[in-house]
Computed example of a mutant assay.
Amino acid sequence: MKRILTVIFSLLLLSCNSNAQDSKKQKQYPVSKTETEWKAELSAAEYQVLRKKGTERAFSSKLNAVDQPGTFVCAACGNELYKTKHKFESGTGWPSFDRPVKEANVDYRPDRTGGFPATEVLCAQCGGHLGHVFNDGPQHTTGKRHCINGVAMNFVPEAKQ
Rank of each mutant, 00 (worst) to 15 (best):
V31T: 15
V31D: 01
T34N: 08
T36A: 08
A40P: 05
A40D: 10
A44L: 12
Y47P: 11
R51S: 09
R51W: 04
K52I: 08
K53P: 01
K53G: 04
G54S: 10
E56N: 09
R57I: 08
A58K: 15
S60D: 07
L63V: 14
V66P: 00
P69Q: 11
T71A: 01
V73D: 02
C74P: 05
A76P: 07
C77G: 06
E80P: 04
L81C: 12
K83E: 10
K85C: 03
H86P: 00
F88N: 05
E89N: 09
E89L: 01
G93Y: 04
W94P: 04
P95A: 06
E103Q: 13
E103Y: 03
N105S: 11
R109D: 02
R109K: 15
P110G: 11
D111V: 11
R112T: 14
R112I: 11
R112Y: 02
G114F: 00
G115A: 06
F116S: 14
P117G: 13
P117L: 10
E120D: 03
V121Q: 04
V121R: 08
L122W: 03
A124V: 04
G128V: 11
L130D: 07
G131C: 12
H132I: 14
N135H: 14
T141G: 02
T141V: 10
T142R: 07
T142I: 03
G143F: 00
K144W: 00
H146T: 07
C147W: 05
I148D: 02
N149L: 06
